[in-house]
C-alpha cells in the first residue's frame, strides 16, 4: 500500500510541452548547465563565424607560410600561407552538419528497423537482429573506406555511409527500449481497433521511448563528430582546398613547431564540440534514468 502522502506534484511535468519536458531537467544537471551553453557557443561560431573571417579562407599567400600568430594573423598562417583564423571560422560546418545528417539517417533507418523488430518479434526480430550483428562485426573505418572509394566522396554519400555505421547501434537501442513498451495493453487495444503498424509505432510506441532515444542521439552525435573528423583527417572526407577542421589538422600537423595554432585550433574546435555534446548526452541520460524511476506510478 502506498503511504498516504499526496503525490509530489506529478501534475506539472505532464502539462508542459514535450520541449520543456526535455530541456528543464537537462538544465537541472551540472553537465547540462555546462554542455548546453558550450554547444550553443560552438554552433553560433560555426554558423555565424564565416561572416567574421578577416581573409578569404582559401586565398594562398596572404601571409608568410607557416608563420606564427601575429596581430595581422591572429592564429598565424598554414603551410600555403593561408590565414588560419579565417579557415578556422569557416571550416566547422562539416564537423557539425555531416555527423548530424549521418546520425539522423541512422535514427530514421535503424530506429525504424529496431521498432519494427521489437513490435513484430518472431522472424522479423531474428532477421533484423542478425542484420545488426552482421553490421557490428565489420570494422567501421574499413567499410567506410571501401564504400567511399567506390561510391565517390560527395557530402551526401559521406552522410549516408557514416549513417550506415551507426544503424546497428541505434537499432539496438530502439529495439531494447521498445520491447517492454509493445507488451502494454494500449498497444493491443490499438491492434484491436485496426490501427496500422506504422500508426501504432509512431503514436503508441515512439512517445514512450523518446527519452532513451534522445539520450542515444546526443551520444552517437558525439561519436559521429569524432568519426567524421577522423575521415577528413585521413583525407576521405572533404577535399582540399576545403577548410574542414579535420583536414586542417591533417595539413598543418607538419607545422606543429613553427605555428602550432594551425593544427591546435581546429583540433580544439573538434574537441569542444564533441565534449559539449557528450555533456548534453550525459545530462539526458541522467534525466532518462530519473524518468524511468518515476514514469509509472507504483501499483
Amino acid at each position: 500500500m502506498s503511504v498516504a502522502i499526496a503525490p509530489p506534484s506529478l501534475a506539472s511535468p505532464a502539462q508542459d510541452g514535450p520541449l520543456t519536458r526535455v530541456w528543464r531537467p537537462i538544465l537541472g544537471t551540472r553537465e547540462g548547465r555546462m554542455g548546453v551553453p558550450l554547444a550553443g557557443v560552438m554552433v553560433i561560431l560555426i554558423v555565424v563565424g564565416r561572416f567574421a573571417a578577416p581573409y578569404p579562407p582559401d586565398k594562398i599567400g596572404v601571409a608568410i607560410p607557416g608563420s606564427a600568430p601575429s596581430w595581422e594573423h591572429l592564429l598565424g598562417a598554414d603551410g600555403l600561407g593561408r590565414d588560419v583564423l579565417s579557415r578556422f571560422l569557416t571550416g566547422g560546418t562539416s564537423v557539425l552538419v555531416t555527423p548530424l545528417g549521418a546520425v539522423s539517417v541512422s535514427f530514421l533507418l535503424g530506429g525504424a528497423l529496431g521498432l519494427l523488430a521489437a513490435y513484430r518479434g518472431g522472424v522479423t526480430d531474428q532477421v533484423v537482429s542478425r542484420l545488426f550483428d552482421l553490421l557490428l562485426t565489420i570494422p567501421p573505418l574499413l567499410t567506410v573506406l571501401v564504400l567511399l572509394a567506390s561510391l565517390g566522396r560527395s557530402p551526401l554519400i559521406i552522410i549516408l555511409v557514416v549513417g550506415l555505421v551507426f544503424i546497428p547501434w541505434v537499432g539496438r537501442v530502439a529495439r531494447g527500449a521498445a520491447q517492454p513498451v509493445v507488451t502494454n495493453d494500449y498497444v493491443h487495444a490499438a491492434v484491436a481497433r485496426g490501427e496500422s503498424t506504422w500508426w501504432i509505432l509512431r503514436r503508441e510506441v515512439l512517445p514512450n521511448i523518446a527519452a532513451p532515444l534522445i539520450g542515444a542521439f546526443s551520444l552517437y552525435l558525439t561519436s559521429g563528430i569524432v568519426f567524421v573528423s577522423t575521415l577528413s583527417f585521413l583525407g576521405l572526407g572533404d577535399q582540399p582546398p576545403s577548410s574542414s577542421w579535420g583536414l586542417m589538422v591533417a595539413e598543418s600537423r607538419g607545422l606543429i613547431l613553427t605555428n602550432p595554432a594551425a593544427a591546435l585550433a581546429p583540433a580544439l574546435g573538434i574537441a569542444v564540440v564533441s565534449v559539449s555534446f557528450m555533456l548534453i548526452a550525459d545530462a539526458v541520460t541522467r534525466h532518462v534514468l530519473r524518468d524511468t524511476g518515476q514514469g509509472r506510478p507504483a501499483r
Partner: peptide
C-alpha cells in the same frame, strides 16, 4: 472488417497498461 472491430470492444485488467501514459 472495420464493422467487426467496432462491434467487439475489449476492456483490459490493468488501466496502467491499457492507457498510453504519453497521451
Amino acid at each position: 472488417p472495420d464493422q467487426v472491430r467496432r462491434d467487439i470492444q475489449l476492456v483490459f485488467q490493468d488501466p496502467d497498461s491499457s492507457l498510453n501514459p504519453r497521451q
